[in-house]
Amino acid sequence: DIFTLAKGLANGLPIGAMIGKRKLSSAFGYGSHGTTFGGNKLVLSAASCVLDQMAAEGFLSSVQANALYLKEALEQKLGGLTNVSAIRGLGFLLGIQTSKNLDETVQAARDRGLIILTAGQDVIRLLPPITVSPSEIDQALAVLQDVFA
């Protein structure tokens, strides 16, 4: 009935928003919901630009195509390696399940200019920005191939 938005809504500037069903509006009358950054015109302008970009013709279909490209390329380039047991996820939130040492793998990728994180005991987590280009994906894939080889 309610979901919240933050971070990416204003491209990293401090903002938060809550969207809910109309029937819930009576629960949020004047003064019932506080805000630290409420009314900040700079941040609201940035959020407006982000929403315009996301609503632009073809933007979301491009995001979906690039996310599919990344996942399929990961499966093709890393899926057959003995130290990779699974590639899973949805959209750009992807995990590479591996038997490799996670700390060493993260550092090796960072040494080559790619920031990756971990998730749990045996997963490398990828979460690129939705504006990542196919050429940037190819650069990341080259680093990951090198790191996992």
Score class of each variant (00 low, 15 high):
residue 132 V to I: 15
residue 38 G to H: 00
residue 72 E to M: 03
residue 84 V to T: 05
residue 88 R to W: 04
residue 16 G to K: 05
residue 140 A to Y: 12
residue 37 F to T: 14
residue 56 A to C: 10
residue 5 L to A: 11
residue 17 A to T: 08
residue 97 Q to H: 09
residue 147 V to C: 08
residue 143 V to C: 09
residue 15 I to A: 03
residue 92 F to R: 00
residue 24 L to P: 11
residue 120 G to C: 06
residue 94 L to R: 05
residue 118 T to S: 11
residue 96 I to S: 01
residue 21 K to W: 04
residue 15 I to Q: 00
residue 78 L to N: 01
residue 98 T to K: 00
residue 12 G to D: 06
residue 48 S to F: 07
residue 64 Q to D: 08
residue 131 T to V: 15
residue 93 L to P: 04
residue 87 I to D: 02
residue 94 L to V: 01
residue 18 M to A: 14
residue 63 V to R: 02
residue 64 Q to C: 10
residue 90 L to I: 09
residue 103 D to V: 10
residue 27 A to Q: 12
residue 90 L to R: 15
residue 61 S to Y: 02
residue 21 K to V: 03
residue 133 S to A: 08
residue 7 K to L: 14
residue 30 Y to H: 10
residue 8 G to N: 15
residue 57 E to D: 04
residue 143 V to R: 08
residue 125 R to M: 11
residue 125 R to K: 14
residue 13 L to M: 08
residue 97 Q to M: 04
residue 53 Q to C: 08
residue 113 G to E: 04
residue 135 S to T: 15
residue 29 G to S: 07
residue 52 D to A: 11
residue 16 G to S: 15
residue 95 G to W: 01
residue 72 E to P: 04
residue 33 H to K: 03
residue 115 I to E: 09
residue 53 Q to A: 10
residue 27 A to R: 15
residue 89 G to C: 00
residue 104 E to H: 11
residue 103 D to R: 13
residue 67 A to Y: 02
residue 16 G to E: 13
